[in-house]
Design a protein around this nucleic acid. Structure first.
Lengths: 153, 153
DNA sequence: ATGCGTGCAAAGTCTTTGCAGCTTC
DNA sequence: GAAGCTGCAAAGACTTTGCACGCAT
């Protein structure tokens, strides 16, 4: 998937998995669907997703969750976000105009999303120069929020 | 430190630490100096740094290294990089024109640096809008390199 | 029928923390 | 002198892996 193709349907996922000799499973479909219905701006860690599915009565093991989100990130379906905390977060990888970036406060862990069209252009130009296929592009601005600036430490 | 101030000297580090009631130590000076003399484009994980210091006969414990790089990242002296591997890398946080970004191959873990002046402008505009003080800004383009594209998986 | 995927539990990797003694201010 | 800092070892958090069984193709 390039940055400007539509979000995956279950059928598209199945087709791509099968093309690689892999398989569609109920677990993979549930996980994809969970991310697709997540409100914009929400992102889940593996544990978040596990808890959420448990609440819904879906018993998908934590191993499968880790395996699946990593696979989907490698396919470009999910974005792997490194916010300030010590674990990864995932969210659906949406094309413009939904694609966004993150402004992160190092002190409070606050995360603000923002959009900017120039970044796609810059990213594609750089990727083209080196012959890379783009899966995702993220501008992360790391700083200190107004609240964070009020504390000395 | 904002994105356009000069790189830290030992004296500047000491001054800033003291202002917060903290202290300068030989370990902190050695670690700062190691990053400052690192060739552009090199970045070290905590273990890398530990090994490198061991080779030089500097016995700084791994705990101190973790504590120090995290502290320096929070101060804006080091950039914390999340490449594709499962641990963080650190490098000195340099102002323009040395500031750069990363193009990362998800399959081969290859990392290419690139520079782009627009990104500073964009970042400062976004940060200003929300009243954030900028410590670092990183555009990470995640994709697949030409070599990576040749393998099916 | 084949062999990929899942769940479980165990192991692994990276990172953090409690504490006693040392060092800096 | 007071308080932060280090080193050590132990613990902690997150993630991966081996294996047997089940399920998609």
């Amino acid at each position: 998937m390039t940055a400007s193709e539509p979000v995956y349907s279950p059928e598209a996922l199945k087709a791509e998995l099968n093309a690689k000799g892999w398989r569609m499973t109920p677990q993979r479909e549930i996980i994809l669907s969970t991310f697709k219905t997540l409100p914009e701006g929400q992102h889940l860690s593996a544990e978040d997703l596990y808890g959420r599915l448990q609440e819904q009565g879906e018993n998908i093991s934590i191993s499968t969750i880790y395996r699946t989100v990593k696979m989907m990130a490698r396919m470009g379906i999910l974005r792997e976000l490194e916010l300030t905390e010590d674990h990864k977060h995932y969210e659906i990888n949406q094309p413009r105009p939904h694609h966004h970036h993150h402004l992160i406060c190092m002190k409070t862990n606050q995360v603000i999303e923002f959009k900017n069209d120039q970044i796609l252009t810059i990213s594609q130009k750089v990727a083209d120069k080196y012959g890379f296929k783009v899966l995702d592009y993220q501008l992360s601005i790391i700083g200190v929020s107004p609240e964070g600036q009020r504390s000395i430490f």
